[in-house]
Simulated scan of single mutants.
Amino acid sequence: MLLAFLLSLPAGASTLRVHYDVGYGNRITVRGSAAPLSWTTGQNATWTSGNVWTYSWSNSAGDVDVKPLINDAQWSTGANYRVRAGTTVDVYPFFGAAQGTRTQFDNFWSPQLGNTRTLRFYLPPSYSENPLKRYPVLYMHDGQNLFDAATASYGVEWGVDETVNGLIGNGQMDEVIVVGIDHTGSNRIYEYTPCCDATYGGGGADLYERFILESVKPFVDANLRTLPGKANTALMGSSLGGLVSFYIGRRHSDVFSKVAGLSSSFWWNNQAMTVEVEQSTVKLPLRFYLDAGTNNDGLTETTRMRNALAADGYVQGSDLYYYVAQGAGHTESAWAARVYLPLTYLFPWQSTVY
């Protein structure tokens, strides 16, 4: 049936493919910004196997903004979808509230580090509503600080779940799975740092890297509906968590394509990581977000890293986002206030690669 339908399409067609099971007796319609679509009355999409609803129109309409509806009454949640002239776009909408869920796995064993910790998961709003959909994954360090004030350092959480819910609902961000990896208290400095700072020592980042690559990511990909390729996989952290994000991301651009560091500790070991970037002539296939506050937050070191990346060819607004947080210090509340910036930069609306 799908082959026959595709053969029936006019040459030069633009096509929307809506992946959603509406249930028996219901239908998907499409409204949009250019004829034959309109925003007042929907056009019926055609059901094909696998619960894919397809609607096509001539590419002479140009680029068109569209929105799927159930029974031409219930609009999908989030922003409109853009279909470029002559392209086929697959979308995986949901129609309920922009409200994700959280779960966790306690006592997750690390054979690389010889210890256990909690993994904390944010599952996006459509996870249970649209089982046809798979998701990008954001791996974040200091997991206990992300979602819950009761477990966060100094009782201040980042509010990542609430922030992501709001960004998805407003159509500013694609749905993602967030994996919060708890730190292990006194081992945090060791695990989050390459070797070795004259004052603080450290040096366990290689083992922590192996823990993520060999244990955490395989577990997540086996148990959740992920898009496991590098195009949809990102790292984020703050302070030493930002440092280790840059360290792992640069070493494994075959696994990660996006890295964010808030107030990253680039001072570590006489700014050895920045020196390495300055001496490199290779531009890795990564998108970087980095920031710092103006209140004793390592702005000088972060700016030096920005300059090193720019010298390698990274361009502000394209594959580099550098931000100065006026008046902000090195605190959980400061990171919570601006976490929306890396989230929308790394996962903007309709950026997921299916």
Results as ranks from 00 to 15, higher is better:
residue 148 D to H: 01
residue 184 T to P: 06
residue 138 L to F: 04
residue 241 G to V: 03
residue 279 Q to P: 07
residue 239 S to V: 04
residue 46 T to I: 14
residue 43 Q to S: 14
residue 311 A to P: 11
residue 269 N to L: 05
residue 141 H to E: 09
residue 203 G to T: 03
residue 83 V to L: 14
residue 214 E to M: 08
residue 165 N to Y: 07
residue 6 L to C: 10
residue 231 A to V: 07
residue 128 S to P: 04
residue 352 T to C: 00
residue 11 A to R: 09
residue 75 W to R: 13
residue 221 D to A: 07
residue 240 L to V: 02
residue 32 G to K: 01
residue 91 V to M: 03
residue 68 P to T: 10
residue 101 T to P: 01
residue 122 Y to W: 11
residue 69 L to F: 14
residue 55 Y to N: 07
residue 84 R to F: 08
residue 311 A to L: 09
residue 80 N to I: 00
residue 189 I to M: 12
residue 282 V to M: 11
residue 147 F to H: 02
residue 283 K to G: 07
residue 273 M to A: 13
residue 199 T to S: 15
residue 137 V to C: 10
residue 304 R to A: 14
residue 168 I to K: 07
residue 340 Y to F: 13
residue 64 V to H: 00
residue 296 N to K: 11
residue 21 D to M: 05
residue 27 R to I: 13
residue 233 T to M: 04
residue 265 S to N: 08
residue 340 Y to D: 15
residue 349 W to H: 10
residue 57 W to Y: 11
residue 83 V to K: 01
residue 3 L to E: 15
residue 312 D to W: 06
residue 342 P to I: 13
residue 129 E to I: 00
residue 124 P to I: 10
residue 261 G to S: 09
residue 28 I to Q: 05
residue 53 W to D: 04
residue 186 S to L: 14
residue 186 S to T: 14
residue 239 S to T: 05
residue 55 Y to T: 01
residue 13 A to H: 15
residue 299 L to H: 10
residue 327 G to P: 09
residue 256 F to A: 09
residue 106 D to Q: 14
residue 112 Q to N: 15
residue 131 P to R: 11
residue 63 D to W: 05
residue 116 T to P: 08
residue 222 A to L: 00
residue 172 Q to I: 09
residue 98 A to R: 03
residue 294 T to V: 11
residue 262 L to N: 13
residue 82 R to V: 10
residue 50 G to D: 01
residue 206 D to I: 00
residue 66 V to I: 11
residue 187 N to T: 13
